[in-house]
């Protein structure tokens, strides 16, 4: 199976305080990996290191078998950061413009057929069910709809991996369920590799196939089905960690 992300011996500290210690992790094509852990466990830091937003103090990261330092095929990566919907409310931007900004800025694979931007925008919005909203101002949409716009933006460049950092923060519960159903569909139907940082494992566990449990160190990394049988899962379920949603 093709290795898409490799994290090797990565450590990171904020002002001398360790956030990640010797993390080793591989992500393969078609994986739906949930990175879980308590607050301050280093989940967001790890994701930011994977996409080059933070430089590790030690260790290395490979994307598509290329060292991160020399990687330049960013169109293969879709990223949605934490609180993406907390954008500047006075920023005048339409749904289509959010996606166009990304499409017009992205580098392209050599020899790629250039699809008209408007067509790509509508195709991406169709996937998330928002093609009718293309010309509406972004701030006129609900939180759940805005979240879908950011998914559409991430998908518009036809990425092979989607990395999301607690993407449903501040979104109502039914919208969260719809959102994760959509991610599940994209993973199964389009073979899109997904890496999802979440503190609410309960709402995503029916979609993921692999789990990385983090608490500065990598506590567990493996199959979701094995994780559910493990002592670690039972500890999380009964130990008061805010990782498991009890709404199911």
């Amino acid at each position: 199976m093709e290795e898409i992300v490799r994290v090797e011996g990565v450590s990171f500290a904020y002002d001398g305080l360790p956030a990640l210690v010797d993390i080793n992790l591989s992500i393969y094509r078609g994986d739906f990996l949930a990175i879980i852990g308590p607050n301050g466990s280093g989940k967001t830091t790890l994701l930011k290191i994977m996409v080059g937003l933070l430089k590790p103090r030690q260790g290395r990261v490979w994307l598509f078998q290329q060292p991160l330092e020399t990687f330049n095929q960013w169109f293969r990566i879709g990223y949605i950061q934490q609180k993406a919907t907390n954008f500047d409310p006075i920023f005048p931007i339409s749904v289509a413009e959010v996606i166009a900004a990304s499409l017009n800025s992205a580098s392209r694979p050599a020899g790629a057929v250039r699809t008209p931007v408007r067509q790509k925008i509508l195709e991406a919005l169709q996937i998330v069910g928002l093609e009718q909203e293309a010309d509406k101002p972004l701030n006129s949409l609900s939180g759940g709809q805005q979240q879908r716009v950011f998914i559409a933006r991430a998908l518009a460049t036809d990425p092979e991996i989607l990395l999301l950092d607690e993407p449903t923060t501040g979104v109502d519960y039914p919208s969260q369920e719809n959102f994760y159903d959509l991610l599940g569909q994209l993973n199964k139907q389009k073979q899109l590799t997904i890496v999802l940082v979440t503190h609410d494992y309960g709402i995503v566990n029916r979609h993921v196939n692999r789990v990385a449990c983090l608490n500065q160190k990598l506590v567990y990394h493996g199959e979701h089905s094995e994780f559910c049988q493990s002592d670690r899962f039972r500890q999380l379920l009964h130990g008061g960690h805010h990782l498991i949603s009890h709404r199911h």
Partner: peptide, 12 residues
């Protein structure tokens, strides 16, 4: 201007 973090990951 709209989203620095996403722009950075897009290779800008």
């Amino acid at each position: 201007t709209f989203d620095r973090e996403a722009a950075s990951v897009a290779g800008i």
